[in-house]
Write a protein that binds this DNA or RNA. Structure first.
Lengths: 207, 207
DNA sequence: TCCAAATCTTGACACTGTAAAGATTATAGA
DNA sequence: TCTATAATCTTTACAGTGTCAAGATTTGGA
């Protein structure tokens, strides 16, 4: 159904978020301007102010939307491997890495502090905490199945998330040298990272 | 010696970098404009173009300078604890965390991809790789002293750096919940993270 | 000494975020 | 159903931004 060209857009708020995500994917953070977003949504340059207080608010909405999608992907993978404890953590981590690679710039926006005063956006806070709760639950499941050491699950969740998140950040910023990347596939690198904190590391090799 | 007010500044390039760092610390990335930097350095708004091709080039210089300082701090701490293998890794990590906390916004600029085409700035590339080489050497020393598992030192270095870097990122973005932060000090959290990948983890507690 | 290169200033331009005022449409209450 | 009020969108305006070009000033080497 082709959209009718009415004065009122109908769902401008979501259209703006969508346009923002698209511009982010094409031109990166430097190319994201409110005016371009408005224009891409087929609306005048000041129209966004009916839905977002300022540019930061749009960015907050884009991030929040990203966290929702991340939650969906992670939780579905976790569910899929619920009965295969030896694979669950790695598959979840792999999904996380792929989410970052699929849409690098949005991932950066979500985690790299482009959003200055995140506490002012309750939906953002709620959605990102929901993700951490999910990680915590997955960690507890893996502790129960003996894949992860015992210990306060929120702290261990920090380790698991942190080790993968740090890896992604270094990867996205090109801080991982080519000599490393040429020797092992991304998937292998992710597995290597995770196995560092998992129980039963049997792999031994020389440096 | 108070600066003379000559037509030629004398050391404008470094003055601009310094001004940039200061503005970053005070107003964050959103407040960093070339014109403000120029003005703070006491020079007209287009003067920076005699030393930097564009804004990105200034940001690259600020980042590069940051990496130099990071190298200085990390290497001196590593040297200091050279003969105390059980503490070296933790102290180095702690220095890294403090470097990030001392100047959050510059740290973000260094690692959060504000710099779009980093490969175009060879000094930046060189300086950041020099840091990774340092981490790699520290990891090798710790493997030799039995604090870290054996394995390809660059991959283990990735783990060590990644787990701390990820932790810092989550911390800087407020993604670490208050319940976690209230229960343990930052230093304890850093130690907990590192001990996850160190040999001889004896700590066991309930979740 | 003198000229070319380096450095800095001035002026200009297109683009940005954002505010204010007005136009258009939706909606709730009579 | 009619209408007033709110929601939505456009137009206009302004200060701040990055960047370029032309000109002024200074430096250093031939």
């Amino acid at each position: 159904m082709p959209k009718k060209k009415t004065y009122h857009h109908g769902d401008l708020k979501n259209a703006l978020i969508k346009a923002g995500v698209e511009i982010l994917a094409k031109d990166g953070m430097g190319g994201l301007s409110l005016r371009k977003v408005a224009s891409r949504a087929g609306v005048s340059h000041a129209a966004p102010y009916a839905h977002f207080a300022d540019k930061q608010a749009l960015i907050a909405a884009i991030s929040t939307e990203g966290f929702r999608q991340l939650y969906t992907r992670i939780s579905s993978v976790a569910e899929e491997y619920k009965n295969k404890p030896s694979m669950q953590l790695i598959e979840v981590a792999w999904a996380y890495v792929q989410f970052a690679l699929d849409d690098r710039d949005r991932f950066k926006v979500m985690f790299s502090g482009v959003l200055e005063k995140e506490k002012e956006y309750p939906e953002f806070v709620e959605e990102s905490q929901r993700n951490f709760q999910l990680v915590k639950m997955i960690v507890e499941a893996n502790q129960a199945s003996g894949m992860l050491r015992s210990g306060p699950s929120d702290l261990v969740a920090l380790s698991a998330w942190g080790i993968i998140h740090g890896f992604i950040m270094l990867l996205l910023e090109g801080q991982i040298s080519h000599t490393v990347l040429e020797r092992a596939s991304l998937r292998e690198l992710v597995e290597f990272q995770l196995k560092q904190i998992m129980i039963g590391l049997d792999k031994e090799s020389t440096n």
